[in-house]
Amino acid sequence: MSRLRVHNFAISLDGFGTGEGQAPGRPFGHAGERLHEWMFATHYWYAMGGGEGGGTGADDAFATMHGQGIGAEIMGAGKFGPPGWQDDPGYRGAWGPNPPFHSPVFVLTHRPRPSIEMRGGTTFHFLDASPADALKQARDAAGGLDVRLGGGPTIIRDFVAEGLVDHMHVVQVPILLGRGVRLWDGLESLEEAYDIEAVSTPSGVTHLTFTAKGR
């Protein structure tokens, strides 16, 4: 069976995966881009934009795993767009006409709408479903490849709490946000279900990998 994976999900030292005050043009609220500066310096990020350059060290090696062997993605309504996007019937996501997913994407929302087919192979499907039901649909669409769980923090927390996540890569960034949405709330004793490894890099971040025990 294909695995459910999380990659490149950045949190602050105090555990916030996004800041407070999300709005159009501010997808991470008051956090701005500070959670992702480590990734912007990698060759992976430069190549995603069609350019050359960027570092090729450990940060790049972790970042590159984001797209390997992925056949579908699940994301929450907050990743698809800022608060209120459900009120705009013409809203098509935050990534322009050619989103970077190039696969089926399942958006979890309490207000579903018809699917949207985009350029480059991305089709957004909107589901009001439980984590287990959403994962089943994503796996069916992934064609035997793995499914990526894209976030935000609430969605990841819900899937982890139900024991559905097989592999998780979390990047702890050395900043304090103080407010926003935390990743770890309610996940006490997570270490009992996962083998955990930590790798710190010269950029100052720590890459935490969680691999479900017995899988």
Score class of each variant (00 low, 15 high):
G67F: 12
Q68F: 11
G69N: 15
G69I: 09
I70K: 13
G71S: 05
G71I: 13
A72P: 11
A72G: 08
E73W: 11
M75Q: 12
A77D: 09
K79F: 10
G81C: 04
G81Q: 03
P82I: 03
P83I: 13
W85R: 05
D87K: 12
D87W: 02
G90Q: 12
R92C: 08
G93T: 02
A94R: 15
A94S: 15
G96C: 00
G96S: 01
P97Y: 05
P99E: 00
P100R: 00
H102D: 05
S103P: 02
P104E: 01
V105T: 05
F106Y: 12
V107G: 05
V107N: 08
L108E: 13
H110E: 15
P114Y: 03
S115C: 07
S115N: 04
E117M: 06
G120H: 07
T123N: 05
F124W: 02
F126A: 03
F126P: 01
F126R: 01
L127H: 05
D128W: 07
P131Y: 08
A132H: 12
A132P: 03
A132W: 06
D133K: 15
D133I: 11
A134F: 03
L135W: 09
Q137N: 07
D140I: 07
G143R: 09
G144I: 13
G144P: 06
D146V: 01
V147D: 10
R148N: 13
R148T: 12
G151I: 10
G152K: 08
P153R: 14
P153T: 14
T154P: 02
I155D: 05
I156H: 04
I156E: 08
I156Y: 02
R157G: 14
D158H: 13
D158G: 08
F159H: 15
F159E: 03
V160E: 09
V160G: 12
E162P: 05
G163R: 06
L164F: 04
L164N: 11
V165Q: 08
V165M: 10
D166H: 14
H167E: 15
M168R: 05
V170K: 09
V171Y: 02
V171F: 00
Q172S: 12
Q172L: 14
V173I: 07
I175K: 03
L177N: 09
L177T: 06
G178E: 10
G180M: 02
R182W: 04
W184H: 10
W184R: 09
D185I: 00
L187Y: 03
L187M: 11
L190Y: 13
L190E: 00
E192A: 14
Y194R: 09
Y194Q: 00
D195W: 11
E197G: 13
A198Q: 13
V199N: 04
T201V: 04
P202L: 05
H207S: 01
L208P: 02
L208N: 09
